[in-house]
């Protein structure tokens, strides 16, 4: 599966548009981690726990999107966009979407 956030791929041709595919994932950290991050908030610096959390979350959302693209028979997803929103205290939603297409060389 080719994933790209470009719209045009040099050397490749889109033979079929299969519509929008998407994946999302909502995750939160357990209270202990939240507490530790609260302490980090006094001293400043990177919140590694959250960076990891969001990365895992993004990976899962991408997997879900890829699975959906596969199920509609696509071999590539173009023009991918990510979006993040915090929906509640301590939880974030990662949303990823793109256009599923069928590509051929040439």
């Amino acid at each position: 599966m080719l994933l790209s956030n470009l719209e045009i791929l040099p050397g490749k041709q889109v033979v079929k548009h299969l519509g929008l595919v998407q994946g999302s994932s909502v995750r939160s950290k357990h209270a202990g981690r939240d507490f530790l991050s609260g302490i980090k908030n006094i001293f400043g610096g990177e919140l590694t726990a959250y960076t990891e959390l969001l990365q895992d979350s993004r990976e899962q959302a991408t997997e879900r999107m890829t699975a959906q693209a596969k199920s509609v028979g696509a071999n590539a997803v173009l023009n991918i966009r990510f979006s993040t929103s915090s929906i509640a205290a301590g939880a974030a939603e990662i949303y990823v979407y793109g256009t599923a297409v069928e590509l051929v060389d040439g």
Partner: peptide, 26 residues
Amino acid sequence: RFPPADTVYDQKLVAGSTVVSSDYFK
């Protein structure tokens, strides 16, 4: 948005993210 058309490149989606926290003084 438009990649160079003269060479046929392989492509891969890459991403990087960071969460930074403010400190108390800030």
